[in-house]
Design a binder for these strands. Structure first.
Lengths: 248, 248
DNA sequence: TAAGCTAATATTGTCAACAATCGGACGACG
DNA sequence: CGTCGTCCGATTGTTGACAATATTAGCTTA
């Protein structure tokens, strides 16, 4: 299980660090719903700190694109949208494809074995739970997480692990996308590992990109099913519209 | 000429916004050298503001990875390294490849014409100045900037235009990489536009990736030349290697 | 009655002072 | 003579109060 909070190895020492981690967790896991207005005095009182560090934390949340801020107005938790999720998948396709390519070039034999072991673990769990829980338990994210780390590109790692993956987790919490693709996804993971073990960067990138693209298409179909017409309201969308500006 | 400061359309209204823009410019253009320690009281006095908004601005600089901060110690302007630049190129290869793909899918005919006109402008300037200044005048960045915007993927746009491109500009200011590749790069730009005009996403992505990869290899060779260990490659040899895709 | 303006209120942005922490210098000890 | 411990100065982190701005409620007027 990846530790998404090890921003700097140790957990934050400063107040702003800690409240940032707490807020991020609360937002990602849906404890603070999408579209909620962030009241500085209220939160400051709740966390028992002053507004200074809190503003700092909110600033970092804004940098992660978890809240949106308008000058002299305030910050709101981002509203998740289908379009944004699809855009996110395109980013992942490009970036993680590159990560897989680099991993195939630079990963050590030991780490490949480690990766194989991880997959075996997943297989056991997946068989036990008949596949449905592969995504829910974040085994999927775990696998991707390791590939990214194995790329050795610190900039790529920071970008994906510090920013984008929290967003992915947020989407999963809100849309709860356990899917019929779980078993297929698991097999695709196996193919990726094989390509990496073969030291075939082209192939590793190709499969990884297809893998993520398939996920995106799956989500696309899911949306189309749930929303035959424009006016559908998933829970997240409904929550997002609370207090939000009326659409133009 | 791309406007790298239109973070939110209008220029910042709040103090932190303005000082952030000023600081970013100063850092990118080398006015504040790499590795410099950022003294909060000093800068606050210099800009005539309090430490509050200044800390906010520094926080945003940290989010852009233009400064690095250690708790209870302070912030320093990032030190540019060859490895980091090469990593940056890999990111660009992945992301701008995707941008070119999307642009080929979604760009309007009018915008393609606009892009052609831009290239003609570049050609005139390039012919006048015999190619050397194509990179220096940021015509290159300008072209890439437009492709990215044309992708229509707001997340991709924000990532590349708000963060990575300031870093690229910083590297150009510091390493001054005007190169013999200017004319070749210009021709490659032409090929990219053709692929987009043909509505050939695969091809557009392929060429864009090769284009950026060639730039990376060029920089790599440049570094190797300057490094004392290897034999110096003549410009002819360097030119011969330009654009050659690595064998499969 | 509805639209527009004004004033009150609450929230955000900014400031200056206080507390906590780090880096370096000096001196003591092995 | 080198190394460790301690102290001091300076810088950062934090706090509460002040000023500026946006939102909202109420009032006036067509």
């Amino acid at each position: 299980m990846p530790d998404f909070n090890d921003q700097l190895g140790r957990e934050g020492v400063t107040l702003a660090d800690r409240v940032f981690a707490r807020l991020r967790k609360a937002i990602v896991e849906g404890e603070i719903p999408s579209g909620t207005k962030i009241s500085e005095p209220e939160l400051a009182g709740e966390y028992g700190i002053s507004r200074g560090p809190l503003r700092d934390a909110i600033g970092r949340l804004e940098a992660c694109h978890l809240v949106e801020r308008r000058p002299n107005v305030g910050a709101r938790v981002v509203s998740l949208s289908q379009e944004d999720l699809l855009e996110l998948y395109l980013l992942r396709e490009a970036l993680e494809g590159m990560a897989a390519r680099l991993a195939a070039q630079r990963m050590s034999g030991r780490d490949v074995d480690e990766l194989r072991r991880l997959l075996r673990q997943h297989q056991e769990r997946a068989e036990l739970q008949e596949g449905i829980a592969y995504f829910q338990t974040e085994g999927d994210l775990d696998f991707h997480y390791r590939i990214i780390k194995a790329s050795g590109n610190v900039r790529l790692i920071r970008l994906l692990c510090d920013d984008l993956y929290h967003l992915m987790r947020m989407y999963r919490f809100q849309f709860g996308m356990a899917s019929s693709r779980a078993l297929i996804a698991f097999r695709e993971h196996g193919h990726i590992v094989e390509a990496i073990a073969d030291r075939d960067p082209e192939m590793a990138e190709l499969i990884m990109r297809r893998h993520i693209r398939s996920s995106r298409i799956n989500v696309e179909l899911l949306f189309d099913d749930k929303a035959p017409k424009g006016a559908r309201a998933t829970p997240a969308i409904r929550a997002a519209n609370i207090g939000a500006a009326p659409p133009p």
